[in-house]
Design a protein around this nucleic acid. Structure first.
Length: 643
RNA sequence: GCCGCUUUAGCUCAGGGGUAGAGCAACUGAUUCGUAAUCAGUAGGUCGUAGGUUCAAUUCCUACAAGCGGCACCA
């Protein structure tokens, strides 16, 4: 007879097997009402699950994060029922909960449009109001396949066919509607609540494979209550305002146009931001033992054939021919082969290792049209690329050094946290298992030493070696790989890089491919969103706007501007015949971090009124102090540390 | 590349088979006004590109391009 242990340590005894609902009711009517599901010995199950033996039980209520996931999953089921009710003949496939919501993939000849949402949502509300219980049942495998095939649900039938033989096939019904599902679910459709909204439609390949048919995916968001939903929708609206494409336009940082799809036209202010970041990176690399090089844009295909890129990536390379020569050149899609060519000039000694060769390498890749995204994913980009030529024994130490540098640089740019993914050996790979064991081992060891916590990303490594990916998130919640560190045993072999070791013999170096920002374009895009265009002083393309109140202060404004410029500050002077309110608004909208306001009083006393972006409070100080203050504040963080 | 949507003034957007409209910005004039929009006036458009239907297309249809949202891809 089951003895049930609750989280507070108390034990309840029952004479016969009981369901979770009964246990909850025995504890109190409040819990009976609130319990949506339970964890039975740590396993999430339906509340209706029968407990026959002694067990630990934790009830899940709406407050739990687990409940939120269940709301979303159940909401996906409700969506599927609604869609099949409204659009007969539509096949169901899968519908998981995801971050902030859920989706469901349907197979239907005619795709959905957002215009269908109103009707679908209304039907969903009906289904939820009906409050039909979710009922679990186990099915025989063949009967289940036959059941779905009879209904014309070939995708579901395929899913079951591909489940391992050992798997129990379970169905869940909600009223008349029934679906294959592992579960668990909440008690009934009413538990979903009404705080949901359909968001967008999209195409998605069946099972994520582009050779498969394309399904019609509906995304939705779902929350515990209306307040949470409203907050989420408001957050999305705010995120839209941070979009780098919008801010880039508003602040006049860059633009893109059809004549150069996937390439950025940097405007003066955007280029200033770019150069600030580049100068900073150059200093950090120099401080950290890197040597900068510059290699050709156009390189004969022979090099790409030798490196293996021609075979694998030719379709994605821009090629160039010249009339007089029978040659095919390619715009470099990456810098590593060229770096090996530099390494190969002259005889290298083990004493030179590790040799850290850096380049702000401008690369071109013919990315698929659908992959392009603002300046985050482009066809022409510049990497803060470097290759570390080292021995196998140096991999761990170089990794530790790299991670420390990356961490410090991300912090300087205002990124306090980031995700790290460890991508290990892919199915198709070069090199022996033994080499992979050593490479992965060295990387793991380095992560342990550096205190890097990572998520395993199995099978996603480069074909030549394992890699670490450093991921930053944009305003809308999309993740982008920025930094990377890749261990490569293959390219040195292919391009015949070698050094003379201590023993007097020739050896192959290992190459570590590494980037911190990744590409300037992507990193700056994320940086724009991170700050919503309100950059710290050292990054701001325009640092101070000098605004006069009356034209009598124009002469003084010129003097102030000259003093600021002499201190290295980027200044604009606004002596237009307009009200000071209007000028403040104008420069605030432009995200200028500091507005220096000059009236008659200031001109007479040699003072400056400083007003910070978005702050009403202001300080009145002497011109001399203002120059000192702002110059200090505008010092890049690495240089500030040296002081 | 695939699915869907979008493309009208510098920007944000409205409109709709009879050759276009607002706000902001721009320009001109007045205003010198102390902390997030002073007032008035003027100018501004091959309605993404190319075809087709029509007496007539910016509007309807087709193709293409670019952008957006996903999927796939990302050396």
């Amino acid at each position: 007879m089951p003895a049930i242990t609750l989280p507070d340590g108390s034990v309840r005894h029952f004479d016969a097997p009981v369901t979770g609902a009964t246990v909850a009711a025995s504890i109190g009517p409040g819990l009976a009402k609130a319990a949506l599901a339970m964890k039975l010995d740590g396993r999430l199950v339906d509340l209706s699950t029968e407990i026959a033996a002694d067990a630990q039980v934790v009830f899940i209520t709406r407050r739990d994060d687990t409940a939120l996931e269940m709301i979303r999953h159940d909401c996906a089921h409700v969506l599927a029922e609604a869609v099949q009710a409204l659009y007969p003949g539509t096949q169901v496939t899968i519908g998981p909960s995801i971050e902030n919501g859920f989706y469901y993939d349907f197979a239907r000849n005619e795709p959905f449009t957002t215009a269908d949402f109103e009707a679908i949502e209304a039907k969903m509300r009906e289904i939820i109001a009906r409050n039909a219980p979710f009922v679990r049942s186990e099915q025989d495998r063949n009967a289940a396949i036959a059941f779905f095939e009879a209904k014309g649900e070939r995708f579901k039938a395929e899913l079951i066919r591909d489940l391992p033989e050992s798997e129990t096939i379970t169905f869940y019904s909600q009223g008349d509607w029934i679906d294959l599902c592992r579960g668990p679910h909440m008690r009934s459709t009413g538990d979903v609540g009404t705080a949901f909204k359909l968001m967008k439609v999209a195409g998605a390949y069946w099972r994520g494979d582009h050779r498969n048919p394309m399904l019609s995916r509906i995304y939705g968001t779902a929350w515990r209550d209306q307040k949470e939903l409203d907050a989420h929708l408001r957050m999305l609206e705010e995120a839209e305002k941070r979009d780098h494409r919008r801010i880039g336009k508003e602040m006049g940082l860059f633009h893109m146009q059809e004549e150069a799809t996937g390439s950025v036209f940097w405007h003066p202010k955007g280029w200033k931001l770019y150069r600030t970041a580049e100068s900073y990176m150059r200093r950090r690399l120099e401080q950290n033992g890197y040597e900068e090089v510059k290699t050709p844009q156009l390189v004969d295909r022979a090099l790409w054939e030798a490196s293996g890129h021609w075979e694998k990536y030719r379709e994605n390379m821009f090629q160039a021919q010249v009339a007089d020569e029978d040659k095919t050149l390619a715009l470099k899609p990456m810098n590593c082969p060229c770096h090996v060519l530099i390494f190969r000039q002259g005889l290298r000694s083990y004493r030179e290792l590790p040799l850290r060769m850096a380049e702000f390498g401008a690369c071109h890749r013919y990315e698929p049209s659908g992959a392009l995204h603002g300046i985050m994913r482009v066809r022409a980009f510049t990497q803060d690329d470097a290759h570390i030529f080292c021995t196998e024994g140096q991999i761990a130490e170089e990794t530790v050094r790299f991670v420390a540098l990356l961490d410090s640089i991300y912090k300087d740019f205002g990124f306090e946290s980031f995700r790290v993914k460890f991508s290990d050996r892919p199915e198709k790979r070069a090199g022996t298992d033994e080499v992979w064991d050593r490479a992965e081992g060295a990387l793991k060891e380095a992560c342990a030493i550096a205190g890097v916590e990572y998520e395993l990303n199995p099978g996603e490594g480069a074909f030549y070696g394992p890699k670490l990916e450093f991921v930053l998130r944009d305003a809308i919640g999309r993740d982008w790989q920025c930094g990377t560190l890749q261990v490569d045993f293959v390219l040195p072999e292919r391009l015949d890089a070698e050094y003379v070791g201590e023993d007097g013999n020739r050896h192959r170096p290992v190459m570590l491919h590494r980037a911190i920002l990744g590409s300037f374009e992507r990193f700056l895009g994320i940086l724009i969103e991170q700050y919503a265009g309100r950059f710290p002083l050292w990054l701001a393309p325009v640092q101070v706007a000098i605004a006069t109140i009356v034209s009598d202060a124009d002469g003084y404004a010129a003097e102030v501007a000259a003093a600021f410029k002499a201190a290295g500050l980027a200044v604009i002077t606004d002596t237009e015949n307009a009200k000071i309110q209007a000028k403040i608004r104008r420069h605030s909208v432009d995200h200028v971090p500091v507005i220096a306001i000059l009236g008659r009083k200031e001109a007479e006393n040699g003072m400056v009124v400083l007003r910070r972006l978005g702050v009403e409070a202001q300080e009145t100080i002497t011109l001399e102090d203002a120059v000192k203050l702002l110059a200090a504040e505008a010092t890049p963080p690495d240089l500030a540390r040296l002081k």
